[in-house]
Design a protein around this nucleic acid. Structure first.
Lengths: 188, 188
DNA sequence: GCGCAACTGGAACGCTTGTTCCAGAACTTG
DNA sequence: CAAGTTCTGGAACAAGCGTTCCAGTTGCGC
């Protein structure tokens, strides 16, 4: 026996970064071989074909994002958590960090298998996460009880979604801050 | 002499629809020939190569969008114009109408020539349009003067941007309505 | 140290890609 | 009718694509 010499998660991370950068169709298998540090043969043996690798990279990306989100949100008042999360997304946007799920949704949304569903899951998941936090913040007296948590949660998720696109366009810090702060204002 | 038999604008519209649907890399020249109703040769003679056609389709799309926007916005109180525009975008979103500029920005944003700039122009243009309308609505007593028109305008543009992504994911009418109504609420 | 399994490198595959070219048909204008 | 231009269909091209396969190397577990 001999176990895999490469770090599977790490390979998927790098593949995901490449896919997010150049798109699925824009990334050739040769690009992947060059960037991932393993041979063509190993790539096919360990991950299947290009599309299978894409899906695995997306799943990995989503899992990592979820872990990161949770660590950002637990503890402290809910409103502060929301603000912190939005500001983090804002910083990523200024840094032109492109989002793999958004890229995948835009590129393949209407036709491809599995991807549309994954993207929708990510979006509704984020909306529900926000809604829960808003409800908690209302309990903590930080958000007016008149506000509809579901509606506001969906709006915040959409704001994040918009920022993912903005990231492709090298926005100024000022623009991004305005968007983030306006979102936060909507909670007051 | 013999003039062009096809309608140039119409061909660009159909090309744009195809590019928006399948992405730039995902659309082959053969796809274009099949859909546009003119021969490979005419296509190259009249529009140059694939990338040139793409840019022309984007420009045409933007011009058409601008014309449409203007017709939607002139006349009546500014607040009603904003609401009408947002609801129109919402309807397009429910109908899964994908936006060529957003697709182009996501696919090529960081690397390609001309496209990033065009996408940013579209976004900042929309933000400024909103800012102007908000200022007018403030003059008309429909929006509190305490609100910052520039910030709010940017937030609305970002909301539209997010909806363009949502359209790829077959959202429910309810979700989209929540997002649109929350955006409108932010003006009160 | 033997055998098994993961890995490498490269060659080969059939297919699609974007692009060019050409002979001829279709049409408009003189 | 003739000249000139646009359009068509199809062939041809080199390059790149995703995928498969194989001979050979490396390293772990018995």
């Amino acid at each position: 026996m001999r176990s895999e010499t490469f770090d599977r998660a790490d390979v998927l991370d790098r593949a995901g970064a490449l896919f997010a950068e150049k798109g699925y169709e824009g990334t050739s298998v040769q690009d992947l071989v060059d960037r991932l540090g393993l041979s063509r043969s190993s790539l096919y043996n360990s991950f299947g074909d290009k599309h299978a690798l894409y899906l695995q990279a997306i799943d990995r990306y989503r899992a990592r994002g979820q872990k990161h989100t949770v660590s950002l949100l637990d503890g402290g008042p809910a409103l502060a958590s929301i603000e912190g999360y939005l500001r983090t997304v804002g910083a990523e946007t200024v840094g032109c960090t492109t989002c793999l799920v958004t890229s995948a949704a835009m590129e393949q949304g209407l036709l491809n298998d599995g991807i549309e569903q994954r993207a929708r899951e990510s979006l509704t998941g984020m909306a529900e996460l926000f809604a829960g936090l808003i409800r908690r913040a209302q309990g903590e007296g930080d958000v007016p009880v008149g506000k509809d948590p579901v509606r506001l949660g969906r709006a915040l998720a959409n704001t994040v979604c918009g920022l993912r696109v903005f990231a492709s366009v090298r926005p100024s810090q000022e623009e991004v801050e305005d968007i983030v702060e306006a979102a936060i204002d909507s909670l007051r």
